[in-house]
Design a binder for these strands. Sequence first.
DNA 1: GCCATCATGTAATCTGTTACATGATTAT
DNA 2: ATAATCATGTAACAGATTACATGATGGC
Lengths: 207, 207
Amino acid sequence: MKENKSKYAILGILSLGPISGYDIKKVFQRSVANFWSESYGQIYPLLRTLVAEGLATKSIEKQVGKPDRHTYVLTNKGFEELQQWLIEPVQDQIGRIEIALKLFFGHRVKVADNIRQVEHFREMRGQELQALIAIEERLKVEHANKPNLPYMLMTVSYGQHVTQALIQWCEETLSFLSKMTAKPKKGIKGLTKKNVRGDKRRSRQSQ
Amino acid sequence: MKENKSKYAILGILSLGPISGYDIKKVFQRSVANFWSESYGQIYPLLRTLVAEGLATKSIEKQVGKPDRHTYVLTNKGFEELQQWLIEPVQDQIGRIEIALKLFFGHRVKVADNIRQVEHFREMRGQELQALIAIEERLKVEHANKPNLPYMLMTVSYGQHVTQALIQWCEETLSFLSKMTAKPKKGIKGLTKKNVRGDKRRSRQSQ
DNA sequence: GCCATCATGTAATCTGTTACATGATTAT
DNA sequence: ATAATCATGTAACAGATTACATGATGGC
């Protein structure tokens, strides 16, 4: 039904104050980078259409030595459209999860390969969690008593909860996988390239 | 660096046995739908290139009354390419999380609107968790002692962990939000359209 | 001299979904 | 009758990234 999330993402940034396309990219990188991003190829054409639709106005600042700054300001209509989107319930879409896909076909490689994969994933999550904790601390200091601080913290908390859960999942999956290496049973024992390919013959109905 | 996950997804399905493009879609829907999907517009052209690259071979089965079935079989080269991808560490990409984006701009609407948003999200997660538990039970019965059952269960567990964490986050966020309704402080109290828009003047440096 | 930053934008490319075209069979 | 399933595929569109073009300033 409703399309173009990028449009609303930009409307949201514009609601924070007058800003240029160049700076919009920076704001994305510095604030919502954990769960959202936009490229210039999206931003600049979209700003044009926002103006065409009467959701924003544009004014040009002359600068010495530097290129002109094209500054955009949200209109009332634009602000209302943003609000309308904000209260609309999110439609959940199935994201593509690469590690899950790889693990789904995990029996095509050695158990040790899967262990390595999950270990690497866990390390990345560990780093991510540390980063999210650092962001939380930074926000509390830099945005102290700003009205949107609570909302910023909620989004950081979202990331922390998910990342923490993934680390937990890694631990459980790793202990499960190491049990598989310890006592491999029929179909896993003596895993060779030839044996693995041999699965193909009896697999059409394994879906 | 490495591109086209769809290609490996299809190679993975092919590793389960000879199959047609039509059935590949079904297998996606019936097995990995929670974290992956492919459309015909991806599958059919990709099968053609897989054959061109020598990663699969094609043979046509004539059927009475029904259209021909084009059946694809993985080659050794294709199997090796799949294995190579499976052991490669996943590169993590920042997915777009709509509810986080909406909440990030939550101070642009009423606290009650954000509460409604999170409540709806929690209900969806609740349903999702129930579905994942049902899938787990179904897999344990239908795929009992199949060699890839453990790997299937790991992917289901992934979803369960994340979904459970999101429900937890919803609870915490909701209690936080209701505290905000109880005692709204400066900048939140007396929220009117005019006051909200007024934020714009001091917001360029709030990034 | 060279690279990064400022600042705009476009074009090419990639990835993915949706809708359509075809046409027979089977179930309601 | 009509809808769904079987089965292939393409074309049109949508969404997004990357690389490029332009050109000045300022730091190493």
